[in-house]
Simulated assay, not measured.
Amino acid sequence: MLAVLSGGGTAGHINPALALASELADRGWDVRFAGTPQGVEARLVPAAGVPFTAFEASGFNRKHPLSLVKGVGKIAASSRKAEQWFREIKPDVVVGFGGYVSIPVARAAEKMGIPVVLHEQNSVMGMANKYLAKKAACVCVTYEHSMACLPPDASARLTGNPVRRSVMEASREEGRALFGLSEDDTMLLVFGGSLGARHINEAVVALKDELLSRPQLHVVHITGPKELDAVTEALALTEEEAGRWTLLGYQDRMGETMAAADAIVSRAGATSLAEISARAIPALLVPYPHATEDHQTTNARAYVDAGCAFMVPDAELDTPAFSEAVFSLIDDEAVRAAQTAAARAQKTAEAATMLADVVTAAAEGRPSTVQ
């Protein structure tokens, strides 16, 4: 069986696709990927060992009508290119993960009678998936309430958001060894996504003295590449303090890092939240307030309502609400245990398996279970 996966624009579209690629490969599938030549997928996908084919696609700005003309032209040309490619490789199914590039790839599949499965990572459905949902064999969602946005006759399945194996398979022992921690130490992990989060950095720096007053606490703080120097200067750690406060601009070993963590302070992007959920780590979520349609807040709310995490709005980072939530996570083992149990009940660790089951059913012409 051959599957073509497609998505682009952000790692949030690519990471779940790569998680699915690993699961399908284990089942004996051949997997290819269609993305843009300039997007992060052009780097991440080949690095994961998945064959990559580039297609031009771009969005448009409503204030500049010419951008719409150019965008439509690229999609039309890429649709024709995808049809020609499909005649050569004969895929059994196409899986779209969002981003403009998935539109021409899925349209070509529809035209040729190849089933299309979509996966939506966020609580608010993206433009590409909204457009393609009407004709898809199945739309897989991360959040149950996202189904309300689908056409009435759409086939839908709640699968959760697949997580990379490098994150899932790392052990706590590996993570603790990476940072030189004993099992008696408590590790707080702070990160704001791939680019960091200045306001979270500032709020955590303001708690430096109170955090370090807890002798068994170790902070691993991933600032974002552009924020590292400013945070280093603001913290002004002594040599002794630096032994318990690790500063990193970026971390490419997130599997081990998350495996070592007892609690996390993070934004609520789709990938971050899926990884936190899959590893069942107690968390304080601070949604990025300027995300499209405030989708990070919507992402976080469902998770918080299930008892898996705390949430503090970005606007309240400088208030006692933030510090109280941070120290509740650090100091109260019962709070952490309750959040871990609630997170495990979400079964995010099974998302790749469930999505692969849907993809297999679509390729074989079987209906997907509606949930």
Rank of each mutant, 00 (worst) to 15 (best):
P320A: 05
R301S: 13
V205G: 03
G113V: 12
A362N: 14
A148M: 07
K226D: 02
G12L: 00
F52A: 14
V101Y: 02
L195Y: 05
E120R: 01
A268T: 02
L355S: 01
N122M: 04
L237Y: 03
N61R: 07
M354W: 00
H218S: 09
E83G: 11
D305S: 12
Q346H: 10
L195S: 09
I200C: 07
V204L: 00
A321L: 04
D357T: 14
E293N: 14
V139L: 10
G59H: 03
A236R: 14
Q371A: 10
E210I: 00
P91M: 10
D314K: 08
H290A: 13
P151E: 06
Q346S: 12
L228M: 13
V101H: 03
V312R: 12
F322M: 13
L181T: 06
L284V: 14
S272L: 09
D184R: 15
W29A: 13
E239N: 13
P215Q: 09
T271K: 08
D357L: 11
Q371G: 13
R164T: 09
R336M: 03
D305M: 06
R198E: 12
V141W: 01
A334H: 08
S146M: 00
R27K: 15
G243D: 07
P151A: 06
V286M: 01
A206E: 11
A361T: 07
G99M: 11
L237A: 07
P91Y: 10
S194Q: 06
R27V: 08
I89K: 12
D26K: 15
S213K: 11
D92Y: 09
L150G: 07
A230N: 14
R157I: 02
V167D: 05
Y131E: 11
A170T: 06
R43V: 05
V204G: 01
A154F: 05
T348A: 13
S277V: 08
C140D: 08
E169D: 15
E256V: 00
A242M: 05
G39I: 09
R279Q: 11
K130H: 09
G39L: 03
A234C: 09
T53E: 14
E241M: 05
A321S: 09
D331N: 15
P282E: 10
A106L: 04
S277A: 15
P289Q: 07
T223V: 06
S78Y: 00
L20G: 06
L273P: 13
D26T: 12
S323A: 07
